[in-house]
Amino acid sequence: MRLLLVEDSKRLRHSLTRALARLGHAIDEAPDGNEGDLFVRENRYDAIVLDLMLPGRSGLEWLEQWRSSGVDTPVIILTALGAVEDRVRGFALGADDYLTKPFAIEELAARLEAIARRVRGQAKSRILIGDLEIDLAARSVKRSGTPLTLTAREFSLLECLARHPGRVYSREQIEAHLYNESDSPLSNAVDAAVYSLRKKLSPGGAPPVIHTRRGLGYVIEAP
């Protein structure tokens, strides 16, 4: 997923960014609302992780501004306050979820996943494409019942394509999903990643599930 993290604590921001990147997400990080606002205006994110108590304007004030300007990206609020009225106010302003500090990174990742599923309209975390079985929550893949081992970036690519089987994704769309603002991928990085993933998804000469649409991009379909 392509994520934006707005958090004033440098240490927390750094740790979350590292952990989520290792889980295969592409993350942009901002220390305050002003910088976060620039990212929101320039990019399309799958979810935003927003701290409540930011220097200057609070996270809720930024959220209110984003929602009123038509930004509908799901937002998870990070807060040190657990009071019900604060949560209610956050939800009223358009927050999708709340996480009270301190929290487990695993829980944040699971909530991000759940939000992404909700946005995609998928109630379950398992996606079946022919004999290919993807468990987004457990971040595992099986082909004809055989477990496959993917890197975080390969899984992220698979997740991107499997969101809408049959839909063609351009190289730019895939790149935006896989890399953050500070990454500088090589021009053939997406093709290389697709090649590697395609190979891993066809163990023992199984028919390919990822297909190339020349001049358009890539698509995942049941063989």
């Binding site: 740790s15 952990a19 301190p102």
Partner: peptide, 9 residues
């Protein structure tokens, strides 16, 4: 939260 995230990482 900082300490927990750093430890988990």
């Amino acid at each position: 939260a900082e300490l927990k995230a750093m430890t988990e990482l």
